[in-house]
């Protein structure tokens, strides 16, 4: 039986009662390829930030600083649009080995 709340304790009709709750849905587990950025080559154009369908590009002070790996599902769109080709889609298995 999958983990989760019982039928008596969830809103009826499949309603979701809190706004902004999609952040709770961790789509990172879907990822087969992880984006890895070569920070040296990054020009902080933020194309990746505009295109990422999961809002998983982390930006601070108008600088690209990394990926939200809890939500990045590894689609590779960022790597595709990056004008300096500084993002490499790397198989997750390589990180498994690291562990």
């Amino acid at each position: 039986m999958p983990k989760g709340t019982g039928w008596k304790d969830i809103p009826i009709g499949g309603l979701i009662l809190e706004a902004g709750n999609s952040a709770e849905y961790k789509t990172g587990g879907w990822r087969a390829f992880r984006p890895v950025r070569d920070a040296e080559k990054c020009i902080h154009c933020l194309f990746c930030w505009i295109y990422c369908p999961d809002s998983s590009i982390l930006v601070q002070d108008e600088k690209m600083v990394g990926f939200d790996l809890e939500h990045c599902k590894g689609c590779g769109v960022c790597a595709q649009v990056c004008p300096t080709k500084c993002i490499t889609m790397t198989p997750e298995t390589e990180f498994e080995k690291e562990k």
Partner: peptide, 21 residues
Amino acid sequence: HNPVTYGPLDFYDYYFEHKRQ
């Protein structure tokens, strides 16, 4: 004032509970 989502995807994790309701 009370934002709500109707009709989200409801997979193997919750669909069954909603049918039970």
